[in-house]
C-alpha cells in the first residue's frame, strides 16, 4: 500500500487515530479502507451515507465509531410512519408549571445513526437533512442549536425499493461520502463466524478521544496544505466529469469543495501535512459516485467509470 511507503516527510501521525483505526478494524473485519473513509468523512466534518444490504455491519460501524470517538450516540430507525417531530422533538404541557416544555428528539446527539433513511416519507427525511445542513433544529417556532460536532451516518438498503422513498439528488449531495461495505473476504468472514458476532464487543470499547478533541482535529485536518498543482488536479477532475460521456451531468462546484476537503482529511489520516494526488484519487469514488448519474441506466456512476475518469486526467 502506498500508505506504508517509506515516505518520510511527515511521520508524526496523531497516535489516537492509529488506535481508532486499529480497534475499529478488529470489530469490522477486512474493511480497513471503508473504515478509513468513514473516519476521513467525519474529520472533514461531513455526513456519511452507507449503502448496503442488511447484515453487512452498517450499524456496527456507526456504533463503533461513536464509541471510539467518545461521541454521544443516538439511533433513529426510519419507518414509513415516522414523523418529523419524532426526530426533532416535541413540546409537552407541564401541568405544575402551566407551560410547554420541549423534549429534544433523538437528533440532539453528536453522532446520529439514521437507519434505513429511505423508509421514511420525504417530509421526515427532509427534517433530518435540514438539521444536517443547518446544524440546528427549528421546532414550534424556536431554533435550537445541535451539539458540536454533529455527524450523521445514514444507512440505506439499495435492494428493496418497494415502499421506499429514495433520496433525491439534491439530498444525496448533503452527504460528503457514500460508501458500500460489501461482503467480507473469506478470512475475515471465518474470523467473524468464530468470534460469534461483534455487537457485544462494541459495548466493551473505551473512547480514545475526549469529547472536545474532535473539533480541534477537524480544524487541523482542514488546514492541511493543498498546493496549486493539487488544486489544478481537483479542478481538472471536476471539469472532466462535465465532459465525460459516461455521466449524465458533471460535478457541482460544491462537490469540488467536498472532494478537496475529503482529500485533506485523508492526507491528515496518512500523517502528511500536504495533500497528494493519491489522496484525491483515494477519496474520489466515495465523494463522486453518488453525485453523478451514469449515462447507462441512470443509477449512481459506476466504479469503472470513475476509474476511467481518473485515467483520463493527467496529473499536473
Amino acid at each position: 500500500m502506498m500508505l506504508k511507503s517509506t515516505f518520510s516527510a511527515l511521520a508524526g501521525r496523531p497516535r489516537a487515530f492509529d488506535g481508532i483505526l486499529d480497534q475499529a478494524g478488529q470489530i469490522i473485519l477486512g474493511k480497513d479502507h471503508e473504515i478509513r473513509l468513514a473516519i476521513a468523512c467525519l474529520l472533514a466534518n461531513g455526513h456519511l451515507l452507507i449503502e448496503d444490504l442488511p447484515g453487512m455491519g452498517k450499524t456496527t460501524l456507526a456504533h463503533t465509531l461513536a464509541r471510539l470517538l467518545g461521541l454521544q450516540f443516538s439511533r433513529i430507525q426510519f419507518t414509513s410512519d415516522l414523523l418529523p417531530a419524532d426526530i426533532t422533538g416535541v413540546s409537552v404541557f407541564e401541568r405544575d408549571k402551566s407551560d410547554f416544555r420541549f423534549l429534544p428528539g433523538p437528533v440532539f446527539a453528536q453522532l446520529v445513526l439514521a437507519d434505513e433513511i429511505n423508509r421514511a416519507t420525504p417530509k421526515t427525511q427532509s427534517a433530518l437533512l435540514e438539521a444536517m445542513e443547518e446544524g440546528q433544529v427549528t421546532a414550534e417556532g424556536q431554533t435550537r442549536p445541535l451539539p458540536i460536532p454533529f455527524f450523521v451516518i445514514a444507512t440505506q438498503n439499495p435492494a428493496h425499493q418497494i415502499g421506499t422513498f429514495p433520496l433525491p439528488e439534491s439530498q444525496l449531495d448533503r452527504f460528503l461520502m457514500r460508501i458500500e461495505l460489501g461482503y467480507p473476504d473469506r478470512i475475515a468472514e471465518r474470523a467473524l463466524l468464530a468470534a460469534g458476532g461483534q455487537r457485544r464487543r462494541v459495548e466493551e470499547l473505551t473512547p480514545l478521544l475526549a469529547p472536545d478533541d474532535l473539533p480541534a482535529l477537524q480544524r487541523e485536518a482542514s488546514a492541511i496544505h493543498a498546493a496549486a498543482p493539487l488544486i489544478d488536479y481537483v479542478q481538472a477532475l471536476v471539469e472532466a466529469t462535465r465532459q465525460n460521456p459516461a455521466f449524465q451531468h458533471g460535478l457541482s462546484p460544491r462537490a469540488g469543495l467536498a472532494l478537496l476537503a475529503a482529500a485533506r482529511a485523508w492526507a491528515w489520516l496518512a500523517g502528511r501535512d500536504m495533500v497528494l494526488p493519491d489522496d484525491v484519487q483515494s477519496v474520489l469514488p466515495a465523494v463522486a459516485r453518488h453525485r453523478l448519474r451514469s449515462a447507462q441506466g441512470g443509477g449512481y456512476a459506476l466504479a469503472e467509470d470513475i476509474a476511467g475518469l481518473i485515467r483520463s486526467v493527467a496529473i499536473p
Binding site: 502506498m2 497528494l276 494526488p277 493519491d278 484519487q281
Partner: peptide, 8 residues
C-alpha cells in the same frame, strides 16, 4: 502514465 501518481 500521465494519470499515475508518483507514489504508485
Amino acid at each position: 502514465a500521465p494519470w499515475e501518481t508518483p507514489l504508485e
